[in-house]
Structures are given as C-alpha cells and as structure tokens.
Amino acid sequence: KKIKIKIKVYNPETKEVLELEIEVSEEEAEELAKKLAEELEKKGYKIEEVEI
C-alpha cells in the first residue's frame, strides 16, 4: 500500500513557503517524514505541519 506524505515548510528568513508531496510504502512513510523534517530544520526551515 502506498502512503502520500505532504509537508508544508516555512522559512522565516525568506518568508518562503514550500509544499512537498511524495508517495512511499507504509513502512517507509514515518521514517522518511521524520528524516525530511530533521533535514529541513537543519537548513533553517520551521516545520509547520507533517501529514501522513
């Protein structure tokens, strides 16, 4: 079964909002969402919402 992940991120420095969407297997979904959120935060983005 495929799971659709939508991530909306906001960069306070540039006032930019990015929306990302990807489909992955159920097993990958939670781990991938967690890794993406961590990487984006390292780059200065503030995570507003992660929906699985």
Rank of each mutant, 00 (worst) to 15 (best):
K1H: 09
K1T: 07
K1R: 14
K2R: 10
K2T: 14
K2C: 10
I3N: 12
I3D: 03
K4P: 01
K4V: 05
I5A: 02
I5G: 01
I5C: 02
I5T: 00
K6Q: 03
K6P: 00
I7K: 00
I7S: 00
I7T: 01
K8N: 02
K8A: 03
K8S: 04
Y10H: 10
Y10A: 06
Y10K: 06
Y10R: 10
N11R: 03
N11W: 09
P12W: 06
P12Q: 04
E13K: 11
E13P: 04
T14C: 05
T14A: 04
K15T: 05
L18V: 03
E19P: 03
E19Q: 11
E19M: 15
E19N: 15
E19V: 14
L20R: 02
E21A: 12
E21C: 12
E21P: 01
I22D: 05
E23F: 14
E23P: 10
E23G: 09
V24I: 04
V24N: 03
V24Y: 06
V24L: 02
S25W: 10
S25G: 13
S25M: 11
E26L: 06
E26M: 08
E26W: 11
E27C: 14
A29C: 08
A29L: 04
E31Y: 10
E31L: 10
A33V: 15
A33W: 08
A33C: 09
A33L: 10
K34V: 07
K35V: 06
K35M: 07
K35I: 04
K35Y: 05
L36M: 14
A37V: 15
A37Q: 12
A37H: 03
E38W: 07
E38L: 07
E38I: 10
E39I: 10
L40C: 03
E41R: 13
K42C: 09
K42S: 05
K43Q: 13
G44L: 01
G44M: 01
G44N: 02
Y45R: 07
K46A: 09
K46W: 14
K46H: 13
I47L: 02
I47V: 14
E48K: 05
E49N: 09
E49Y: 15
V50L: 09
V50P: 01
E51V: 15
E51G: 03
E51L: 11
E51P: 01
I52Q: 02
I52S: 01
I52R: 01
I52C: 07
I52Y: 06
I52L: 08
